[in-house]
Amino acid sequence: MEREKRTGRRDGRDGERMIKDSLFPISLFGIFLGVLFLMSGIHVGLVVLMNRLNWSELVQTLVPMAYWSVVAGGLTLFTRKKIRNTYEEPLHRLARATEQVAGGDFSVYVPTVHTSARLDYLDVMILDFNKMVEELGSVETLKTDFVSNVSHEMKTPIAVIKNYAELLQTGKGTREEQMEYARGIEEAAVRLSDLISNILRLNKLENQRIDPEIEQYDLCAQLEDCILQYEEMWDEKELDLEVDMEERAPVQADRSLMELVWNNLLSNAVKFTEPGGSVKVRQRTTEEYVEVSVTDTGCGMSSESVRHIFDKFYQGDTSHSGEGNGLGLALVKRVLVLMNGDIHVESRQGEGSTFTVRLPLPGDKEDRPEVTEL
């Protein structure tokens, strides 16, 4: 019986795959042994037959030699064919595919030797190679989209600055109109500056060129400070703000990076909530983590938007696209990865969204607050 081992890979029916441990299993050597025993028996039969027929000694010598030459040749050809089909040809296909990928062709696909029910470790390596090529192709597409999106996002404020500057150069228009042009230039310049700053910050985060300054601090105090920064925006849109927090919640994280997280979530909640709506900020501590959720009664998102909400430059609601550049939530996601935290989104179109952030508790249990059931 073939020696096999279980792996964590699952097939299309959610069952465990059986992956063969060897390209040349024990059963193959059993076949060779059986064939040799059979051939030996035939050899003995030939010797007995030649003795009974009183063949000459020369014939009795040549016949076994010819017989074993045929047997050896057959076994050699069978073994060679088995090695070529099982080992050499798949590796040659893999080598050619690797050369194509090195040349920039990410459409390569290498077929496995066996079906999904009879995979061996070479098949698994080929499957992993195909997956790697697919991921590389996705990265290349994302890079192209990134350059395209950056160009588009920069083009808009630059065009605004150019148009308003040309209007100011004409010297026409009232004093109020000229001030309006200047404000337009300032707003476009701020938007362009924010875009460049976010791109640089995200690039540093993704390439791990930022060393987080981890410290223990009170998360509740930081949330209160961030919420107060948006007080004018709450009042302007007449939003109902509900805050449910503990008195103190210590966390170990980079204070400045986490401030970026809260500011992005709060600004999005205000931006996407219609006047007269409500925003709720809730914080609680469990035995494993500190959780903060920001819920709004805004426009909500479709399931497609939820899947891509953390992609760079993705903006699900185009009606607010002029108020951001689609990098905020990508930054949030990357920061939380660095902080060993995570973020979860629940949203229904037309009913609002809830962003839930979870951060691990500080390592020192003495500094942890007493957890009470809410």
Rank of each mutant, 00 (worst) to 15 (best):
A188I: 11
L23R: 12
R175Y: 09
E323G: 04
L359D: 03
E166V: 10
S267T: 01
V290Q: 11
P275Y: 01
D128C: 05
A269W: 05
L23E: 11
R282G: 13
K333D: 07
D364Q: 02
E242D: 11
E177Y: 08
Q315V: 15
E370C: 03
K172T: 13
G322M: 04
E153N: 11
G12V: 00
P64D: 13
W234Q: 08
I185K: 09
E140H: 13
K81G: 02
K237H: 09
S267Y: 04
E88S: 14
L200P: 01
L28M: 08
Y164A: 15
G30N: 11
L23Q: 14
I309A: 03
E351Y: 07
S27I: 06
D244Y: 02
L119W: 13
G34L: 14
G171D: 09
L241N: 03
V279T: 08
A330I: 02
L223N: 09
N263Y: 01
L266M: 14
V147Y: 12
M65P: 00
N203M: 10
E370A: 12
F310G: 05
Y164L: 08
N263R: 10
N325V: 11
M39N: 06
L49K: 03
S303V: 06
R334I: 01
W262H: 13
T356D: 02
G12W: 11
I185V: 13
K143R: 15
D311A: 06
V35E: 04
K5V: 05
P90Q: 14
M125T: 09
L75D: 02
V44I: 12
Q169F: 09
I210D: 02
T141M: 08
M179Y: 08
G74N: 06
K365S: 06
G363H: 03
F310M: 06
T286I: 12
V150P: 04
Q283I: 00
M39I: 05
T76W: 15
K82H: 14
N207C: 02
K271I: 02
D11A: 06
V160E: 14
D235H: 10
V63F: 08
